[in-house]
Design a protein around this nucleic acid. Structure first.
Lengths: 146, 146
DNA sequence: TTTATTTAGTTGTTTAACTAACTATATGCC
DNA sequence: GGCATATAGTTAGTTAAACAACTAAATAAA
């Protein structure tokens, strides 16, 4: 009986991701309050484009752990908001490369600051070494299930 | 500068809840494979009714961290699936008490076993004391943001 | 070179989350 | 009692996730 650390009553919040839901809601509220009209999901796509612009939709799938239809629609909405542009790849006409617009580039600093603020609030009072352990456990969980 | 344990590159997966998403997907797949036609969200409502039957919709909101419209629709769908029944409260006609059907009662054991299996897979190779720390950190995160 | 297979992306359908606006009942105050 | 306010739940509209079925282009195999 391995890992039966999770008694019935405690299993719930782990599965439902109470903590990460709370983090996402908090950050979304910060976006709204700041008048930034983007969703957390859209932000998560921009996040990877800020790291490297011109990724394909498939690369965005891998980076964001979403399936292809989800990325199609997120890119649809981001394009409607004039935050990204689909550009067909030269060498392979199946591929769309996604490029940030000027507008989206301007969002980076402000949204990243808000994200950092959310994490600081979330982790207030938690010692660094415990955060480290928590991160490691969550990474193992992810790897175990992949 | 408190808690700047999160360098830019690591902030993403915490916010997006990679791990809990992976857990939820894994459990949903187990439900599908077992031929159980319920969603994780529906299961999370049943979960609290198994603990105590006849909760009001508002109590389910609090228990599941969802808002009222979400619960209205989840109960709609659970009612269509014949898994719960709305019963108006005697003393207050605004309130619906939600009761499990026989069918839903039968789902408890099987789904809880699958949930436990998912958690065991997820936490394989993680020492008990680290799981404990992780749980505590996530609880603090939740409390900090509430 | 023609056919089969794989890859990239889209479309349709169902379920769910969030916000805002709404109805109905209950409670508090004068 | 009558009016204001709070509470329980519903409805409508937008965004997103998961799955299946699909189109188009590229690659592999015959």
């Amino acid at each position: 009986m391995p890992n039966n650390q999770f008694k019935k009553g405690e299993l719930y919040s782990f599965i439902t991701g109470k903590a990460s839901t709370a983090i996402a809601r908090n950050l979304q509220k910060k976006f709204n309050t700041a008048g930034l009209k983007i969703t957390i999901e859209q932000w998560s796509v921009l996040y990877h484009l800020w790291k490297e612009d011109g990724k394909s939709q498939q690369e965005l799938c891998n980076a964001t752990f979403r399936d292809k239809p989800s990325i199609t629609r997120l890119v649809d909405n981001l394009e409607r908001l004039q935050l990204v542009k689909r550009v067909p790849a030269d060498n392979d006409r199946r591929i769309n490369l996604i490029y940030l617009t000027r507008q989206a580039q301007k969002l980076q600093e402000e949204t990243m600051d808000l994200a950092e603020a959310t994490l600081n609030e979330a982790l207030e009072g938690v010692p660094a070494d415990r955060i480290e352990i928590c991160k490691e456990v969550l990474q193992i969980v992810y790897d175990n299930l992949r």
